[in-house]
Design a protein around this nucleic acid. Structure first.
Lengths: 195, 195
DNA sequence: CCAATATTAGACCGGTCGTCTAGTATTTAG
DNA sequence: CTAAATACTAGACGACCGGTCTAATATTGG
């Protein structure tokens, strides 16, 4: 299928560039040039830049979802440590990128939430899914006696997610992975400690 | 001083617009039109859009700094509750704005950190100052026996700040103040509880 | 071979930033 | 008080880049 190939190539390349530069700062020409696709083709595959942006979000979320599931279903590790492993893998990734980029969904949330309702809705749904995955894992931890049963798993999952996004932002701004490390340490030694 | 008046009017109006729309999405014409200042004046007062952006950051940080200091030096309240009051006043503000805008410094951090080193540095310094204020207040809480002495005040201050920024982002994306409320509840009932 | 579809090419319009020339007000100096 | 220097305003302008569209070309299937 030529069609799908070119289309997903544009999405793949575009995801990387938008990850680095943001949505508004990224021109279509830039993406097409890097993808080696002529400009005229773009509007054959996408109705508008907005439609393309949504496709980028979906593409990224799909990959992320898989990564998250792989970690959180790792039966070889206790539930709380699955979350820890996942977060630490994220920390390693950000460090590898010299503390740039951060999280694409968080970036677009910050940039687009007040600007485009369709983006906002989609991003919100993605965050809700992530949160649900984490909450399930925390509930499992409670059943296994790894975590105090009186905690509200859903509540804590939300705080874990938002706190993590905030730590990623700090890491970007300070250009140091320390904020992410600090968040891990405080979270796992206070809120998520076995008690 | 006519000079200062026009200049600070441009900055004042510009701060509001950039707060709402972000830096890249805001054109100079838009600001000048709303301020009722002709375009020719802009480049008399600012060398470039970048210089202007930095002035906006400084202007905002100045106002914020004062608000923060007012709360954290309120002798009528215990140190931990000063922080709580401050965060709750922020929550009230965001709610009033229908959960839009968030925090200007956080917004610009997300948008500009990877794009402009001068912006990044300035924003990073501002975050560091805020963090220091919070850490001082936490240390005071420890001396007053309001908080466990074995906590690392600086560490917790950083997590509080980054977590708060993350909660603001979630609030923007979900269009609900719940993430900010949840963060408050979890923070003050686990990490910051008297123990 | 023809018709329907997939793809490309590049013109187009509108908006951006930053500059520039002219003109007007205000201050300073003799 | 006048004259010269400075501060500020006015808005047209150019160069550029954004997203979108129409027309031409290639490809496919019947």
């Amino acid at each position: 299928m030529e069609k799908k190939d070119t289309r997903s190539e544009i999405v793949r390349i575009g995801t990387g560039i938008i990850y680095r530069q943001g949505y508004n700062a990224t021109g279509i020409d830039t993406i097409l040039k890097e993808a080696g696709v002529p400009k005229g083709s773009f509007y054959h595959y996408f109705k508008s830049k907005e439609e393309f942006g949504l496709a980028v979000i979906d593409h990224f979320a799909e990959g992320f979802e898989q990564r998250l599931a792989t970690f959180l279903r790792d039966e070889e590790v206790t539930p709380v440590n699955r979350i820890r492993n996942f977060l630490e893998s994220g920390l390693a990734r950000v460090s590898q990128n010299a503390c740039t980029r951060g999280c694409l969904i968080g970036n677009l949330g910050q940039e687009m939430a007040d600007q485009n309702e369709r983006f906002r809705e989609r991003l919100s749904r993605i965050f809700a899914m992530w949160r649900q995955h984490i909450a399930d894992c925390l509930a499992e931890a409670q059943q296994a006696g790894e975590l105090a049963g009186d905690l509200d798993a859903d509540l804590v999952a939300g705080v874990l997610l938002s706190g993590w996004e905030g730590a990623i932002l700090q890491t970007k701004v300070t250009k140091s992975p320390q904020p992410m490390r600090d968040f891990l340490e405080v979270m796992f030694s206070t809120t998520l400690r076995r008690q």
